[in-house]
Design a protein around this nucleic acid. Structure first.
Lengths: 137, 137
DNA sequence: CTTCCTGCAAAGAGTTTGCATCAAA
DNA sequence: TTTGATGCAAACTCTTTGCAGGAAG
């Protein structure tokens, strides 16, 4: 895969290894500056994009439109409440066989997948149901 | 669930039924205007948000940050190329048992899930590999 | 020397918010 | 009347692009 990592790409990978959790581009920018690396925000985005295409970094875009970047990790999924936004980490994942099948069938080189569940948490279910029962307050 | 649909929410659902495919808020805005509905873009967003929380509409946020809205449909997933962005529709899905389990275990009311695969398509694999082999052009 | 990388600032895209008005009960 | 819905425009956030200078081979 597209070898040649630039100095800043290396730095980004290094910082991400220290963080060990999905991080936004803007947060990475701050982290890098804290590590005494002078770098521009645009370079962070450009570097992340290059790393992404080579499968060295994976991306999960939130409903807010913000993207979280992380090192490739298996089976980190979420169950998220559509109302309050709280989410629970899910580490079970039954898609590996399908992934293998897709890879050979479509001749793609699959780097990773995302699996996210959405609904209402117990607390927000109560709020929603209450709102439905008592329409006029 | 939060009953009371507003006039505009009803119109949005109606137009979405006619479209039968994931659509951006901005496109929906245009469609609604074509249907002779005078509506503001902000109202489209507010209505979609209300419908989302009630599970009547589901959302998929693209890496670009744009959100696509659709009526609840089972098993519409994608295999997307990280380089050229082309994607293939995947209708197989092995997560239903897990979904049931999560629903009862966490007491969530799950409305839907997203499952997306990312990698390189055959064509872009070739381009990437070529770039790696011949670093200096 | 030539090519790609980088930083800064400006521009862009999509979405959200403030506020006055309007509709519904 | 009272509450929530709506439209418009302004404001915001995250991301991308233009460009001149700098590093790398």
């Amino acid at each position: 895969m597209g070898e040649r990592r630039t100095r800043n790409q290396e730095r980004i990978l290094k910082v991400m290894k220290g963080l060990m959790q999905p991080t936004s581009a803007q947060d990475l920018y701050i982290q890098l500056r804290n590590h005494e690396y002078t770098i521009g925000l645009a370079t962070v985005y450009r570097s992340l994009d290059a790393l992404k295409v080579d499968g060295l970094v994976q991306v999960r875009t939130l409903p807010s439109g913000e993207s979280l970047y992380s090192l490739p990790q298996e089976d980190r999924h979420h169950l998220t409440c559509l109302r309050c936004g709280n989410s629970i980490l899910i580490t079970e994942c039954p898609v590996h066989d399908l992934e293998d099948e897709l890879q050979s069938h479509h001749k793609f080189r699959i780097y990773y997948h995302t699996l996210e569940f959405f609904g209402l948490c117990p607390s927000c279910q109560a709020k929603e149901d209450a709102a439905a029962d008592a329409p006029s307050l």
